[in-house]
């Protein structure tokens, strides 16, 4: 086994094999993987990250396929991270997104990696973004992250990207499923794919109405602070809102895709011009720092306390001898 330093050196001089191996180390959260992240971190922050999420079967992988082709026509290099759920029963997974991206084979400016959600409850966004960091450090211009917009953690991944594309398709039911899942709130761009199918107009109209209703809230940057703003018809244009575009596409025919890429580029510009990119980045990193700190402190405390002591304390709480808050104070001050 090669050392991490050697792998990084090889990766930075273009070895895709080294890149793939580094990703595995990071994905498996090995000590080597953590060491790699430490060395790579200074080289991150340059890639544009785009989350692509939506209900199963809406055409996300097909879109990633044609979006990547369009980005390649614009001379951008592209990495793809495609996340699929792990079976809760076996711990295994069938990762089938790559199947729709066969067109991209043979292009050295493209790198595709499939990932399973594994047992990463809550930490999925973090684990995914650590992999994205490796690809970022490898020098890709764009990193596209496909997730199924089903659970909170998948939504978290999408949110952690600079630009989030939510994919809808006609015929998913009249009251579009994703609206229920609250997924529209995170969209910077909405794509209505399968525009060759009947019902597109209704889907677009329903989505437009949802957006215009003003039920949306947006994080906006104001004097370097992120604030939650109601984005409605009555809002004073004091803030420079991003108007979420709705774009119709036929992913399998490469129709409407250039427009999606135009909007992604425009959104990137918008973030830079308004200073929102650094505000979002700051918020993201702050959240990550606090998350990791919580994890580390908790793990540390549980290591020191041990299960027996915890069990005894729990029994006292059950017996109404100690209240939960006092129990916590007791644990924290003892350690």
């Amino acid at each position: 086994m090669k050392s991490i330093e050697t792998l990084i050196e090889e990766m930075r001089s273009g070895s895709r094999r080294a890149l793939a191996r580094l990703i595995s180390q990071v994905e498996n959260e090995t000590p080597d993987g953590q060491h790699a992240l430490k060395l790579l971190y200074p080289h991150t922050g340059n890639a544009a990250t785009v989350g692509i999420t939506g209900a199963p079967g809406t055409g996300k992988s097909s879109l990633v396929n044609t979006m990547t082709k369009e980005l390649r026509r614009r001379d951008k290099t592209v990495a793809v991270v495609a996340v699929d759920p792990t079976s809760p029963f076996s711990g295994g997974a069938v990762l089938g997104d790559r199947f729709r991206m066969n067109d991209l084979a043979g292009d050295k400016g493209v790198f595709i990696r499939s990932m399973a959600t594994r047992g990463n409850l809550g930490g999925l966004a973090r684990a995914t973004f650590d992999v994205v960091r490796v690809l970022d450090a490898a020098g890709f211009d764009y990193v596209l992250i496909e997730t199924v917009g089903a659970g909170q953690s998948e939504v978290d991944i999408a949110k952690a990207a600079q630009t989030t594309v939510v994919v809808e398709a006609p015929g998913l039911g009249d009251d579009i499923q994703a609206i229920k899942a609250g997924i529209l709130e995170i969209a910077d761009i909405i794509v209505v794919n399968k525009a060759d199918r009947p019902g597109v107009k209704n889907t677009v109209r329903a989505l437009r109405a949802m957006l215009d209703l003003g039920h949306r809230q947006k994080m906006v940057a104001h004097h370097g602070q992120l604030m939650l703003m109601q984005d409605g018809p009555d809002t004073e244009p004091e803030y420079d809102f991003w108007r979420v575009p709705i774009i119709q596409t036929i992913a399998v025919e490469d129709d409407g895709i250039a427009k999606v890429i135009d909007k992604i580029e425009e959104h990137g510009e918008h973030l830079r011009e308004t200073g929102m990119d650094s505000d979002r980045e700051r918020l993201r990193l702050e959240t990550e720092l606090v998350d990791r700190l919580q994890d580390a402190l908790l793990r540390d405390l549980l290591d020191k306390t041990g299960p027996d002591e915890l069990e005894a304390l729990l029994q006292q709480i059950i017996n109404r001898e100690v209240d939960p808050a006092s129990a916590v104070r007791q644990l924290v001050s003892a350690s």
Partner: peptide, 30 residues
């Protein structure tokens, strides 16, 4: 599916793969 049920992660690339495509996928997916 059987391998998934045995706890493995299976990258499924489907029909009509050229040898080049297969080896490239094996490399990228480690």
């Amino acid at each position: 599916r059987a391998l998934r049920d045995a706890g493995m992660e299976v990258i499924y690339t489907g029909l009509r793969q050229t040898p080049e495509m297969i080896v490239e996928a094996a490399l990228q997916e480690d």
